[in-house]
Simulated assay, not measured.
Amino acid sequence: MRLEGKRAIVTGGASGFGAGIVRKFAAEGAQVMVADLNIDLAQTVASEVAGIAVQVDVASADSVAALADKVQADWGGVDVIVNNAGITHLPKPMETVSDEEFDRVFNVNCKSVYLMARAFNGMMIQAGAGAVLNVASTAGLSPRPNLNWYNASKGWMITATKTMAVELAPKGIRVNALCPVAGETPLLASFLGEDTPEMRAKFLSTIPIGRFSTPEDLGNAACFLCSDEASMITGVAMEVDGGRCI
Results as ranks from 00 to 15, higher is better:
Val22Ile: 11
Gly12Phe: 01
Glu48Asp: 15
Gln43Pro: 00
Ala27Lys: 14
Gly16His: 08
Leu37Glu: 00
Ala26Asp: 09
Val34Arg: 02
Phe17Leu: 14
Val45Tyr: 03
Ala14Met: 09
Glu48Leu: 09
Gln43Val: 00
Gly13Arg: 13
Ser47Leu: 04
Gln43Met: 04
Gly12Trp: 01
Ala46Thr: 11
Ala35Glu: 06
Ile39Tyr: 01
Ala42Ser: 06
Lys24Ile: 02
Glu4Arg: 11
Gly12Gln: 01
Gly16Asp: 05
Asp36Asn: 12
Ser47Gln: 03
Leu3Asn: 03
Ala30Asn: 07
Ala42Asp: 01
Glu28Asp: 15
Phe17Thr: 03
Ser47Trp: 00
Ala30Leu: 10
Asp36Pro: 09
Gly16Arg: 04
Val45Phe: 01
Asp40Met: 10
Lys24His: 10
Ile9Gly: 07
Asp40Thr: 14
Asn38Phe: 02
Leu41Val: 00
Phe25Trp: 10
Gly20Leu: 14
Gly16Leu: 05
Asp36Trp: 09
Leu41Ser: 09
Phe17Asn: 08
Val32Ala: 15
Leu3Phe: 11
Gln43Asp: 01
Glu4Trp: 01
Gln31Tyr: 11
Ser47Pro: 02
Leu3Asp: 02
Ala14Leu: 13
Ser47Ile: 01
Glu48Cys: 13
Gly12Val: 00
Gly29Cys: 10
Leu41Asp: 03
Val32Gly: 14
Ala19Asn: 05
Asn38Trp: 01
Ser15Phe: 11
Phe25Val: 10
Lys6Pro: 02
Arg7His: 05
Met33Glu: 00
Ile9Ser: 04
Ser15Tyr: 02
Gly20Glu: 06
Ile39Pro: 00
Leu3Thr: 07
Gly29Ser: 12
Glu48Trp: 13
Ala8Arg: 03
Ile9Val: 15
Ile39Met: 07
Gly29Phe: 11
Ala27Leu: 12
Phe17Tyr: 15
Arg7Asp: 01
Val32Pro: 14
Thr44Leu: 14
Ser47Met: 03
Gly20Ala: 14
Phe25Ile: 11
Ala14Arg: 15
Val34Met: 05
Ala27Thr: 12
Val32Phe: 05
Val10Thr: 09
Ser15Pro: 03
Phe25Tyr: 15
Gly5Leu: 10
Phe17Pro: 05
Leu37Phe: 11
Phe17His: 08
Arg23Ser: 02
Ile21Arg: 14
Gly13Val: 05
Leu41Arg: 15
Gln43Thr: 07
Ile21Asn: 07
Met33Thr: 12
Gly18Tyr: 07
Gly5Cys: 06
Asp40Glu: 15
Ala19Met: 06
Gly18Lys: 11
Val34Phe: 12
Ile9Cys: 07
Leu3Ala: 04
Gln43Trp: 00
Val22Leu: 09
Ile21Thr: 12
Gly12Arg: 03
Phe17Met: 08
Gln31Thr: 14
Glu28Val: 02
Asp40Ser: 14
Ala19Asp: 06
Val10Pro: 10
Leu37Ile: 13
Ala26Cys: 08
Ala27Ser: 15
Asp40Pro: 04
